[in-house]
Amino acid sequence: MINNRRKFLKTIAFGSAAGMLTIPSCKVGNGGKVKVTILHTNDVHSHIEPFPDNHAKYPGQGGFARRFALIKQVRREEEHVLLLDSGDIFQGTPYFNFYKGELDIKLMGEMGYDAGTIGNHEFDNGIDELANQISKSNFPFLCSNYKLNNSALDGLTQPYKIFKKGPIKIGVIGLGIQLNGLVTPVNYKGVDCLDPVVEGEKVAQYLKEKEKCNLVIALSHLGYEYKQDYFSDIKTAKNTKYIDVLLGGHTHTFLDQPTILNNKEGNAVIVNQTGWGGINLGRLDFTFDTSDTSGNLAFNAQL
């Protein structure tokens, strides 16, 4: 018994060393405002270079080198920045045909992406090749509703990741689309696609209640909205209460500005999607009032 208690105290004492670092920053934050900027992309589809100047719809738009310059500029201006991607990194230009996604993931790593999720096109060269590419990534791939333990992706993704930005904790999850009907079955062998609303909500609740995250962001490849009764970002936003932001993909939806709607408890949820091809960089700015403990996602009066 005494031994057990000693062991317990020793464990906590180690923990308190980290606590010593946490407390001062917590106190500094009291009464202040902390700004966090979220940058995001989706469905870049291997558009490493800008679209050609003679392209019918997107002449001269996009490109990794320009996006990186823009990201660097935001990082110079803002202290707390998160850079996220909502899937379909792969497929769409010869860069993918020749380099199988390796170059995309490597360059995203160099741009300092904090996390991504898996889109259906990530499976285009089969699950073994996807596993090979993900294993070389220096940023994590988040999948909260794919059961992967019987697949080649076992252990290569995580259900969530928590990012600390000053005193603020941001939980990020990943919601994957139902692959049946979209991907050749052998290419996603062993992947069990679970209900994204149920699984996403479960992980988001854990992040809010147990991990005390101030904001939960879902990287989603479900698609913005459908006429059919498919899972979508709009459907997920309306049927959950622990997810604050859905950064979407798959439907290549261009939004003039993020959509704001109510979740199932009547609180605000933000849904955004940047189109595709790296044409836009999405940006969402949040402030966290560290003196206010109400916690709900509130809106600037300007909106």
């Binding site: 917590c26 934050g29 902390v34 700004k35 800008p50 738009q61 996009g62 490109g63 320009r66 996006r67 823009l70 005193p167 603020i168 005390k212 101030n214 904001l215 604050d244 261009f254 939004l255 003039d256 500005q257 993020p258 704001i260 605000a268 933000i270 955004n272 940047t274 189109g275 790296g278 044409i279 836009n280 960089l281 999405g282 940006r283 969402l284 700015d285 949040f286 402030t287 966290f288 009032d289 560290t290 206010d292 403990t293 109400s294 916690g295 709900n296 996602l297 509130a298 809106f299 600037n300 300007q302 909106l303």
Partner: peptide, 15 residues
């Protein structure tokens, strides 16, 4: 401590 979150603004910046 739960800090009140305010969404300031959002945009899709053309590259």
């Amino acid at each position: 401590k739960e800090h009140k979150v305010t969404y300031q603004e959002g945009s899709n910046i053309l590259i």
